[in-house]
Nucleic acid binder design. Structure first.
Lengths: 305, 305
DNA sequence: CTGTTAGCGCGTTCAC
DNA sequence: GTGAACGCGCTAACAG
């Protein structure tokens, strides 16, 4: 085929806006150029950010992204037409068992976990432990000693991520020779408020509060505001996520760069799908403290009269 | 085929976790059971909500969702492998020309616009005009007269949605016999702050501010807080979107239920794809004022000495 | 290096 | 009613 013929063909293809059918080519190559992403919901800021980064990275690699929102873990794999329909599966923030992963891998090829980890499975996640440990030390360095940790806990226990965050706080407190003070409430919009309610009813409330997530911190902030407790005047408040609301509320927090998480995952998946050997199949990304105006040195103790 | 054989086949399929290849079936039927969604980005709360609702509705209809994030309008259609790869196209918040729509429809089948509208094209959007008109009346009813509108404007002009919002404000003000007062800044995080800066430098600042979106209101709120202007004490502030931050900041706003927008779009697309006649191909959804604590009656004018 | 052909997995049709 | 054969659009392997 001469170059000029090539050009004519190209021009014709352009003219008719021809595009190869990945449907048909996938049929013969066995590769669909599609990656299935399973996520609890697209609505929360964190998930949306991860999937956004993922989408950009996959697009760069020439892969399309199928997004599935699945609430219940049990039936998710049955409702998904996976076999022959995607080259890989990305599970965002899903606590899967090894069996579920194996089953999924059997049907959908490589499985990559985001925000969770499972021994032997490819995963991308942040260093939750270091995040809360660093956050706790930030508060310690400001001079706080009575630092409470507020978080969510379902009846079924805590996710790996939640556990790691709690442990980071515990470790930093213990290292400093201080007693950890943990309050957990059931997840949901009222979580932070309820936790603050409990803390404020204590005879000697904390001078600083570290929340498991910005969402929890948000509720806490509202409860403190409504109770007339100045932040950071009386209580310093710190979140975890760097949610949009955090900058809105000038909330000190821990940036976990979810979009980067997604982007790194995308590159990893592309390597896996396209037969390249990824340098590392289990990536842990660092986090970063973002100091803002909701944390300050504790008010001097009023000397008793 | 006897029923018992059917059952045995079903059992075997279950056992081997067999799933029909939409790839192959699409090849022969011409239907891919896939819908392409094009959205500027998944990160902003509004887009994530729309796509989330869309995903749920499509899933119910047995359709998979391909998500494409595209920033630049010009090349978006070339980068997307559309032909034979999706049954329909949903464009979220993209200002398309009729030519682009026609081209897209030629390649991807039915095109549905969300958050925008184009004569003759299927679209789902909210009543922006009624939203800002209602919001303005809310402020008028509280007793405000000097009500400013702040929004964003690029060099290229305003989107239909922005224009509709501005017009709603204009109309309500004119109806009340008051002079509209509009301040627009270039979009971005600094938009609200800059607008408030301009308003506060006026010799007689407004007593109420209506923002084009919660994002703008957010910046405005921050600027007011930093300037020590009490909200709603000195200035009432109102947003538009019912973003998460709005409830966090107790901001009065206009709920536009983006997830419902997505869900309605999903049903419409499913009807179109599956050959049903949709009842209406151009849906306008109502909005609702959400009163919170950032709006109140204006402070009594201090009588001059 | 170019042109031809088989067959990927499935739905439809046509013959039985 | 059941079953076989064709072809959807494409790629890979092979023959010229």
């Amino acid at each position: 085929m001469t170059p000029e013929v090539r050009d004519k063909v190209r021009a014709a293809a352009e003219e008719l806006s021809y595009a190869v059918s990945r449907n048909a080519s996938g049929l013969v190559t066995g590769r669909t150029c599609r990656v299935a992403v399973v996520v609890p919901s697209l609505r929360p800021w964190y998930f949306a950010s991860v999937v956004s980064g993922l989408g950009h990275a996959l697009h760069e690699a020439g892969l399309d992204m199928l997004v599935h929102q699945v609430g219940h873990l049990e039936d998710w794999i049955h409702t998904l037409p996976l076999r022959h329909n995607s080259d890989a599966l990305v599970a965002v923030a899903l606590e899967l068992t090894e069996e579920q992963c194996a089953h999924a891998a059997d049907m959908a090829g490589p499985v990559v976990l985001v925000g969770e980890r499972l021994p032997g499975r490819a995963s991308v996640h942040i260093d939750d432990h270091a995040g809360t440990a660093g956050a706790t030390r930030h508060l310690l360095n400001l001079g706080h000693a009575r630092i409470a940790y507020i978080g969510s806990r379902t009846d079924g226990g805590m996710s790996l991520s939640s556990t790691a965050r709690l442990n980071g706080y515990h470790e930093a407190m213990t290292e400093a020779g201080l007693e950890p003070w943990t309050v957990t409430k059931s997840p949901g919009p009222g979580c932070g408020e309820l936790a603050v309610g409990e803390l404020l009813s204590h005879q000697s409330p904390p001078t600083a509060v570290l929340a498991e997530s910005d969402n929890v911190a948000l509720g806490a902030h509202r409860a403190l505001r409504r109770s007339g407790v100045p932040v950071p005047g009386a209580i310093s408040l710190m979140g975890f996520d760097d949610h949009d609301v955090s900058s809105a509320l000038d909330l000190t927090t821990v940036d976990q760069a979810p979009q980067t998480l997604g982007r790194v995952t995308g590159h990893l998946v592309a390597d896996l799908v396209q037969g390249r050997r990824p340098s590392d199949t289990c990536v842990e990304l660092p986090v970063q403290i973002v100091p803002r105006q909701s944390t300050a040195a504790p008010r001097k103790r009023r000397t008793s009269p």
